[in-house]
Design a protein around this nucleic acid. Structure first.
Lengths: 119, 119
DNA sequence: CTTGACTCTCACGTCAACGTCAAGCTTTAC
DNA sequence: GTAAAGCTTGACGTTGACGTGAGAGTCAAG
């Protein structure tokens, strides 16, 4: 398929898809005309990219992460574990922030008296 | 204390502290000279700001979050719960990313055969 | 009262992840 | 074969969270 269809199927703009290629996250074939040609695999690849972007990774980090997420064997273990660790650290920071907010909310609930259950 | 000391004590640059004020996250007093004067409370406030920034919130979101984290009563409940929800959603996205990476890692471990335990 | 450390307010620079034209090929439809 | 739709490569604009001086006032010490 070409860039327009991939954009529609992934919900990602053409500009973003070209940007991902520029960053080495996608490597589409080219027609003699210069048109980019993508495969079904690229649909999944774009989904992964968006997932990792949403999780807070940079394109550079994703560049290291993507090889880890392809179901092929090439022994790219070591990099992978580092990435999982980094993500886990990120998650921990978020957990901490949530914890502080929740405890403060609990304090407020207590102070206010007729504490609303949760929502 | 003045800005230099607060910067040293929090590990945050003076530029950042002025920026936080510009965004309404800090409201230091001023000396007749114009010098900013901070209190001990501001040390904790800066810590909270950094925590939330690290968790992925924008200064605008933090502006809504900070009132929730002050241990005073003023019934600012409703905003709070929305924020906790937003943070939780963010965390969930990260959990998802971690999950995918971990399962792929497991797959690779299986493929490679002599699977290294965890690290 | 002068030096040096500290602080002030502009104001432009940066980096990432795109948005948004512009100008010009290519492919598809009729 | 021509118009519309789709694609190409630039290249400049944008937003957020600051970095980095510039030029000038202020405060503590000798």
């Amino acid at each position: 398929m070409r860039i327009g269809e991939l954009a529609r199927r992934t919900g990602v703009s053409e500009r973003a898809l070209r940007y991902y290629e520029e960053q080495g996250l996608l490597r589409p074939e080219r027609l003699p005309s210069g048109y980019r040609v993508y495969t079904e695999l690229d649909v999944a690849a774009v989904r992964r990219v968006r997932l990792l972007l949403a999780a807070g990774l940079s394109t550079a980090q994703i560049n290291e992460a993507l090889p880890c997420m392809v179901d092929e064997d090439e022994l790219l273990q070591p990099k992978c574990s580092g990435l999982v660790d980094a993500l886990a650290a990120h998650r921990d920071r978020i957990e901490e922030a949530i914890g502080e907010l929740e405890s403060t909310r609990a304090n407020l609930n207590a102070l206010i008296g007729r504490a609303r259950p949760v929502g």
